[in-house]
Each structure stands twice: as structure tokens, then as C-alpha cells.
Amino acid sequence: MPVTVVVTEVEQIADGWGDLLPSCWTNTVFLTPWWQTIWLDHFGDRSTTRTIAATNGDGALVGIAPMNVADGLVTFLGDTDLFDYRDFLVRKGGEDEFYPDVFDEIDSWEWDACSLESVPEDSPTIRFATEIAKDKGWHITVEEEDKAPFKSLPDTWDDYVSGLGKKYRHELRRKVRKLGNSGEVTQYDSTSEMLPGHLPDFFRLHRLSSPEKAEFMTEDRERFFIELMETAATHGHLKLSMLEFDGVRVAACINFDYEDSYLLYNSGYDPAYSQLSVGFINKAWTIKDAVESGKRTFDFLRGTERYKYDLGAEDRLIYTIRIRR
């Protein structure tokens, strides 16, 4: 069935966008209309934003392309600092109609290069972009951009721990035992009502964690994080997990509870308690919560930090597609 493509605004199709996303290949919290809108409000330029909506003969959305074109470069909305995954939104089964018409629309714009970053390895965008670029005589490369480790979750926490390698299983149990023997330990999730009191501690712990994190968390990004977490909480997606030791908040991590997964977005801890592995244990216990909540996947998101593999993660690749014409 042929599709019709129009350039519109995120807000004008937000309801249909939200209905479409669960049926798409890349169904992730980063592609929700509210995430895209918050990023636009803080860092985007609406004068260069071009959101393509593709509809079928019945007027139903079959796909969306949230794009930006500036200085001769076409990109997805967002950036690699704040988005772990980006992609076209295309309903499963609608790829043959969606991709050619969307790339025809993009072809009509003024640009020299197109850089589509953070595309998951299982996205049909990689195949369709390659085929269409070759048909149009464009030069295209597909490059590994990063790794986004993840862990498939079993039915019980005992099964999860037993599934770790012997060394990592022993280390996890040892660290938990040491922390418990050293003082009073509590982990809890921040509710919407608790957020105003907990957010300052999250930012304090995040900045304390490392010089790199302190540099990353600018005032602009802090404002973005605050609105993002407040909005995620209203949608029921936020899991801000706080770890207290002897009544002091010593570790925090942001997870997004989305569909059948937890996504570990960012974290922090107080290095004064590093000998007690408070940051590591806080993350491990969020995995325990994910298992006990019936989730099927724990997504550690981009980056190859050692702790992810200590907790059993396997790599999933994300790609950058570069096109020149």
C-alpha cells in the first residue's frame, strides 16, 4: 500500500507517535515523543527540525523520521551524549513502503552529508539505507559506533546469580555480605513526591563519581535531566534507585522501566564508600528488582565499563550510517 509523507512537528503527531512506537522495530524510551520534545526544548533548533510522518491510504501512521538538517548535514534528532539509541520509527511489515518514500523526501532537501548515529544492530534501517543509497548512487558506509551491553533475565534472582561465572558470582556475594556486615543498608526507589528531595543527592553523587562525570553534568544537562526524570515519573517509567548506608545516601542510579526492560541510564556514588562497592551493589540490586518485576532484559546501554560484564552482560552493537552524495 502506498504511503504519503509530510513534514510536520513532533507535537502535532505526538498521540499517533505514542500509538505507533510499540509496533516499531526500534521501540525504546529514547524514541518516545516526550523524550524527543524535551531534548528539542533544551538543545534543539526547531528552525532546522524536520519530522517526517508517513501515513497509509487510511490516514494511519506507518512511520516517522525525526530529523534535523543544518549546515549541509542531515541527522536524527538528539545527540550521542543523551541518546543511546536513535532510528526511524517504522511499523513492522511496513518497511518496503516507508524507507523509499522517506529517503526520497530527504533527497529533496539541500544537504551534502547524512550521519545517522546510534542505530541498533537489529534495525532494518541498516539494510534499507544501504540498498537505497546504492540505487541512488550515494556513497555509504556503516561503521560500528559503540557497544550497548545487555543481559537477558531469567525468572528468579537465584537463577540470575547462578548464571554468572564462578568468579563473578563469588565476588557479588562477597561484596553484598561485606556491605551488610559493615552497617545498616537500605535501597529504595524515589517516588514522584520524593524526587525534589532526592534529585540534589543524585547530582551530588554523579559529580562525585569521577572528574569525567562532573565535567559531563553541566547546568544545561542538569536541567534536561530534571525535566526528563519528572516527565518519566509521570509516565510511570522512572526508577531512581537510592542506596543508603547508615542513613546516608551513598549511591544512586537512573533506570527507565520501559516495556519488558530496565535501561540503566546514569548513576553516581560517593568514592568515600568505594571500599564497600556501594555503586556496584546498587546496580546489582536494580537488576534484582528487574528480575522480580518480571522484566526480560536489563539494558546497560552504551559503553564497555567493566562492571557490566562482571554482572553478566553481553555486547550488542550500535552503528553509524554515513552517506554522501
Rank of each mutant, 00 (worst) to 15 (best):
Y307G: 06
P100W: 09
L31K: 01
G183Q: 13
G16L: 10
E184N: 13
I321M: 05
T234M: 09
V29K: 02
S47R: 14
Q187V: 07
H235A: 05
V74G: 00
D159P: 01
D155M: 07
T4H: 13
N181H: 07
D299Y: 08
V291I: 15
G236T: 12
N255I: 00
W35Y: 08
V142R: 03
F202V: 03
Y307H: 13
L208M: 14
D155I: 07
D257N: 14
H139R: 14
S209G: 02
I132Q: 07
F83T: 00
G59M: 01
Y309W: 11
T28A: 04
D201R: 07
T80M: 09
F83C: 03
K167V: 14
T55D: 03
I287K: 10
D84P: 09
T156Q: 06
W111I: 07
H206Q: 10
V161P: 02
S267Q: 06
P2H: 11
K134G: 00
F150Q: 09
E97Y: 07
P154S: 14
S274Q: 12
D45A: 09
K175W: 06
R177D: 14
I13C: 11
D201W: 02
K288N: 09
D107V: 02
Y160P: 09
N27S: 15
I140G: 03
D81G: 07
L179H: 00
T297R: 14
T37Q: 12
T130I: 00
P149Q: 13
T28W: 00
R46L: 06
L153K: 09
D58E: 13
Y258E: 12
T32I: 05
L228T: 11
S115L: 11
W138N: 04
I140K: 04
K175L: 02
Y319Q: 08
F256T: 00
